[in-house]
Design a protein around this nucleic acid. Structure first.
Lengths: 163, 163
DNA sequence: GGCTACCGGTTGACGTGTCAATAATGCTAA
DNA sequence: TTAGCATTATTGACACGTCAACCGGTAGCC
C-alpha cells in the first residue's frame, strides 16, 4: 500500500523559499490562464467553459443525449453541480431534460438544436484560443514537460485522495 | 492548407490532438490542485485562499494596515472583488475598515487580533499542504520546469493583453 | 406487509467572482 | 466659478461551486 516512511526530502517539513515562489507563480499563472480562456470563450461565443464541456459531451454522445449521472461522471462533476448548471443551460435553451423511460427516477439530458448550433459556433474560436494562449506560449519541449507535470500532479493527488 | 494568416508553427491554426490532450490534462489538473489546496486550507483553518492572501498581505504591511486599492494591486485583485471580500471578512471579524485620514475617499484596512491569530494558525498547515500536494509530487527538475512554464505562460499572457 | 437502506436527482443556503452602475471627492480647464 | 473628469470605493445583479438536506423510488430483509 502506501509507504509509511515519513521521510521527506532532506527531512524538511516546509517548502523552501524557491519552491514557494515557483508554487505561487505556477498556481497564479495557471489560474489566470484559465480565466483568460474562460473570458475568451465568453466573448467569442457567450458560453462558459462549463457550458462547453456539457455541450461537447452531448455532441459526442449517442443520439446527442445522456443520462444525467452518466454525464456527470463523464465530465467529472458532482451531481449537484451538474444539476445547477443544467438548470441554467435549460433556461437558455441549450439543453432539455426529460424523464428517462428505462431508468426509474433517471433524467435524460438532450442537446437542443440551439445548443448544437452554439457548440458549433464555439468550437473553432475556442481551439484557436487554446493554441494562442497555451500552445504558442511554450516550446515543444515545454509542452511535453507540462504534460508530464500534469500527469505527476494528478497521480499524486489520486494517491493522497486514496489515503 | 493555405496560409491566410500570419505564419504559425507548421502553418496550423488549431492545436494537434496531442497538444489538446496535454492542454486538458494540464488545465484540469492544475485547477483540481487549486481546489484541493483550497479545501485543505478550509478544513485546517476555516479560511479561503482569498482570506489567506489578504491576511498575508496585511501581516507583512507596515502597521498591519493598508489602503484598500494598494492592497488590491498588491494581491492582483480588482477593487470590486476586494470590496466584496473585505465585507465578508469584516463580518467574520478578521479585518476592520476605517476612513483614511490622508487620502480622500480612501479606506484603510486593518488586521484585527482575531485576523492575526487566524493567519498565524493557518500558515504552517498551509505551507505543509503546498509541500505535500505540489513539491512532493514532482522531481526537482520538474519543479524547475514548472517555474519556467509558468514564467513563459505569464509572459505570453502579458504580451497578448498588451496587444 | 412494513422497515430500512441506498440511489439518482433536485433544492436552498451561502461563499465567491465579474460586470456595470453608483457615489464621493479632488483636479483641471473653459 | 463651475462643468467636466479621473480616482476610490461600494453596491446590485447575476453566474458559478460546494455542502448538506431532501425527495421519490427500487430493493432487500425481517
Amino acid at each position: 500500500m502506501t509507504e509509511a516512511t515519513p521521510v521527506r526530502r532532506g527531512g524538511r517539513q516546509l517548502p523552501t523559499a524557491d519552491e514557494l515562489r515557483i508554487w505561487r507563480d505556477f498556481i497564479e499563472t495557471t489560474s489566470a490562464l484559465g480565466s483568460r480562456l474562460e473570458s475568451r470563450l465568453q466573448t467569442d461565443s457567450s458560453l462558459s467553459t462549463g457550458d462547453y464541456a456539457v455541450l461537447l459531451a452531448l455532441s459526442e454522445a449517442q443520439g446527442q443525449a445522456m443520462r444525467s449521472s452518466e454525464l456527470a461522471s463523464h465530465i467529472g462533476w458532482e451531481r449537484s453541480r451538474l444539476s445547477h448548471h443544467l438548470g441554467r443551460m435549460e433556461r437558455r435553451g441549450l439543453i432539455r431534460r426529460q424523464e428517462c423511460a428505462t431508468v426509474p427516477r433517471g433524467a435524460e439530458v438532450l442537446l437542443t438544436t440551439a445548443g448544437a448550433e452554439a457548440f458549433g459556433r464555439a468550437t473553432f474560436p475556442h481551439l484557436r484560443a487554446i493554441r494562442e494562449l497555451f500552445v504558442d506560449a511554450l516550446t515543444p519541449d515545454q509542452i511535453v514537460a507540462a504534460g508530464e507535470i500534469a500527469t505527476a500532479l494528478r497521480a499524486h493527488l489520486d494517491v493522497l485522495r486514496a489515503e
